[in-house]
Simulated assay, not measured.
Amino acid sequence: MRLLILTRHLDCLGENDAPISNAFRRFGCEVIFGDVNAIAADDYRYFTRGVRVPENDEPYYPGSAVRGDRDAYFLDECQLIWVMIPPHDRVARDVWQMLWLASQHVAFVNSVEGMMFLDTKHALGYVLPKENRASSYISNDFSLLWERYQQTPDQCWVAKPPNGFCGQNVFLLPPNGPNVRTILQCLTGNTVALDEFGAVAPHKFGAVARHEFGHGLRGFKAEYAILQEYIPEVTRGEKRIIVTCGKAVAWHGRKSAPDDHRSNITQGAKPVPVDLHSGEVELAELIGQRLMAHGINFVGIDMAYPYLLEFNIANPGGLYDAQLASGIDRSDRVAELLIAHFKK
């Protein structure tokens, strides 16, 4: 089997790039690292620039640079493609379109459709049973979110963008918090301030000022935000679970930094060894199997049982962190399950 791993940084491999490439090579597979931002077409045959890992090359580690000369590799000459990380925003639309066309002839570990439409917090209501998710309100209208917050004066909330990652712009909103209004305005694009400016501007700049400054020159500024009920179970411990082909294969706990409510490793949290009880395994594998129906075969799940907080499809950390926490490398199990699944 020839596996093409599409990533952004061939000079600095990520925490999944390295152990997974090592594992597939141990199973006798050929591994190529390709640049996801360099997808191109030769008479509508799609290829990328990349490096084929020599058969007897040394193992890679997170942060390693891929060794070897770069060349062109056609996607239809591979048996399996793993989009490890999405393309850059500037080229994403073109790259996703070409990858989808390529996926009509080549197997992808995670489907293009799944990565585009399910790798978002919007999808929690579609995938999760109601009893395993927090109630959420999603809008790009500040007034709707502010009204919901005010209706529950004793409720603690979390506010965040639906397509953020690594803990970006995740805010804990206490009851009667003095900055809540500002935070919700910020997350929804500060349209209140822009509208107010447009309303007063005609008195200073003429009749066209509202158009020019409110929605013309400044453009459409509204952004979506999620207002989600805070889950107290998080304080007792959040777990990251890696699920491959519907099976829980690796997991670790996350201990937040003492000065931060977020448990993201990128925000200073530390991976710690934990066990999973039967209910956690059952829920994780249920979600994994539901995602498999949409072509998603590798996913990272964040759980504070009985609640599932979110799932991550694009390059979910956890496999390497689980190894650091437990001392056990589970990457061979990932490769074994994927090879068996795609050889059917």
Rank of each mutant, 00 (worst) to 15 (best):
Ala209His: 02
Gly300Trp: 03
Tyr305Gly: 12
Tyr44Trp: 13
Asp141Ala: 07
Tyr61Glu: 15
Ala41Phe: 08
Glu336Gly: 05
Phe342Gly: 01
Ala293Ile: 11
Arg133His: 07
Thr152Lys: 14
Ala250Asp: 08
Tyr307Lys: 14
Lys343Met: 12
Val334Ile: 14
Gly318Trp: 00
Tyr60Arg: 03
Val83Phe: 00
Leu337Lys: 08
Leu172Thr: 08
Arg333Met: 02
Phe213Ile: 14
Pro316Asp: 10
Leu124Met: 13
Phe220Leu: 14
Leu128Phe: 13
Pro273Glu: 14
Phe171Leu: 05
Arg133Gly: 05
Leu99Lys: 08
Val51Leu: 03
Val180His: 01
Gln104Glu: 15
Ala314Lys: 01
Thr48Ala: 10
Lys239Leu: 13
Tyr73Phe: 15
Gly268Ile: 08
Pro161Gly: 07
Lys343Pro: 04
Ala201Ser: 11
Gly214Pro: 02
Ile81Asp: 00
Glu238His: 06
Gly317Ala: 12
Gln104Leu: 15
Arg90Thr: 14
Ala284Val: 08
Leu4Glu: 03
Lys239Glu: 10
Ala193Thr: 09
Arg2Thr: 09
Tyr305Met: 13
Pro129Ala: 08
Leu309Tyr: 00
Val281Met: 11
Val36Lys: 03
Arg148Trp: 10
Val170His: 04
Glu77Phe: 04
Ala322Gly: 15
Arg262Gln: 12
Asn163Asp: 15
Ile85Asn: 10
Ile265Ser: 04
Met116His: 04
Asp259Ala: 10
Gly50Val: 04
Leu319Ala: 11
Ile20His: 00
Leu13Arg: 00
Ala304Ser: 14
Asn163Ala: 11
Val158Arg: 00
Gly164Met: 11
Ile226Ser: 00
Pro162Thr: 08
Met116Val: 08
Ile313Leu: 09
Arg67Leu: 08
Thr191Gln: 06
Arg210Pro: 03
Pro271Gln: 12
Arg26Phe: 01
Glu229Tyr: 06
Pro54Thr: 03
Phe298Tyr: 15
Gly177Arg: 04
Leu338Arg: 00
Ala314Pro: 02
Asp260Phe: 04
Pro86Gln: 01
Pro258His: 09
Phe108Cys: 06
Tyr73Pro: 09
Tyr61Ile: 01
His261Tyr: 13
Lys343His: 12
Asn179Ile: 07
Gly219Trp: 12
Asn110Gly: 10
Ala207His: 10
Leu184Ile: 14
Ile328Glu: 15
Asn315Leu: 11
Asn169Phe: 06
Lys160Trp: 08
Leu13Phe: 01
Leu184Ser: 00
Trp82Arg: 01
Glu15Val: 02
His277Trp: 12
Asn169Gly: 01
Gln151Phe: 06
Asn315Trp: 05
Asp42Arg: 05
Cys186Asn: 05
Trp96Asp: 13
Val36His: 09
Ile287Met: 11
Glu58Gln: 09
Thr182Ala: 09
Arg45Val: 08
Asp141Val: 11
Lys160Phe: 04
Val36Asn: 07
Val274Thr: 15
Arg148Glu: 13
Ile231Gly: 05
Gly164Glu: 13
Val243Tyr: 03
Phe197Pro: 00
Gly177Met: 09
Asp119Met: 04
Ile301Val: 15
Pro87Gly: 07
Arg90Asn: 14
Gly125Cys: 03
Gly167Ala: 09
Asp154Pro: 00
Asp259Arg: 05
His252Met: 15
Gly327Met: 13
